[in-house]
Simulated scan of single mutants.
Amino acid sequence: MFEYHGWITIRETAANEDDDVRLRQIIDELRLRIAEMADPYLLDLRWMNGEPFIHLGGNPNHRSATDVIDLFEHVAAVAPGSYGLLHMRDDEDPGHENEVRVLRLARGTITQHTEALLSPCIPKLEDPFTG
């Protein structure tokens, strides 16, 4: 199981002085990429209060069934002023089976961290298996 929940605020630069024409080009390209992903879960790009955001969430059987990490990496490359978080729980991730991991996008860089508020999943989120 690969559960994920995340968001990205899309900005061309960290200076918060985006070129409106370039930002709209980036958004148009991201809309095409999202449409090609054909993700059956939550994947939404929309403008709110004059700023573009991506929201995503899902729970496929395996991590390989989704491109969400690739999407974060792509946004980091084309819009390095963007920032956001992707919380992931992957019971097939060696060494991290009992953790919620956080992918952090900031200033064009992606880093991974353990989410201390939700990890270890057993016992913080679930009881130990007793069967």
Rank of each mutant, 00 (worst) to 15 (best):
W7H: 14
L30K: 08
M48R: 11
M48V: 15
E12R: 12
R22E: 09
G81D: 07
M48P: 00
I27H: 01
D67A: 13
F72K: 05
P80S: 01
D67L: 09
D91M: 02
P128T: 02
I122K: 08
R31E: 14
E92H: 12
L85W: 03
I27E: 06
V21I: 14
R63K: 14
R22S: 14
I69T: 07
W47Y: 09
R107V: 00
H96Q: 08
G50E: 03
N98C: 12
V75M: 03
R89G: 06
E3K: 11
E126S: 10
L42T: 14
D39W: 13
P52I: 01
R11E: 12
F129I: 13
I110H: 05
N59I: 03
L43Y: 00
M1V: 13
E3P: 04
A38N: 12
Q25D: 03
R22D: 12
H96M: 04
E99S: 06
L42I: 14
P52G: 10
E73R: 15
A116G: 00
L32P: 02
L86I: 06
L125D: 02
R101W: 05
M48N: 12
T111F: 07
V68A: 03
L118P: 00
E17K: 14
I10R: 02
L85N: 05
D44L: 11
L85V: 04
A77K: 12
V75L: 00
H96E: 07
W47E: 15
V68N: 07
V100C: 15
H96I: 00
P123E: 05
D93V: 01
F72R: 08
V78G: 01
L23N: 10
D19H: 11
P80Q: 04
V100I: 11
L45W: 03
L71F: 02
E92V: 00
H87N: 01
M37Q: 04
D20S: 15
D93S: 08
T9C: 08
V75A: 04
P52D: 02
P60R: 08
G131Q: 07
D93M: 06
D70M: 05
P128D: 10
M48Q: 13
R46M: 08
D70A: 15
Y83A: 02
P94L: 09
T130W: 08
I54F: 05
G58Y: 03
P120E: 04
E17T: 13
E12L: 13
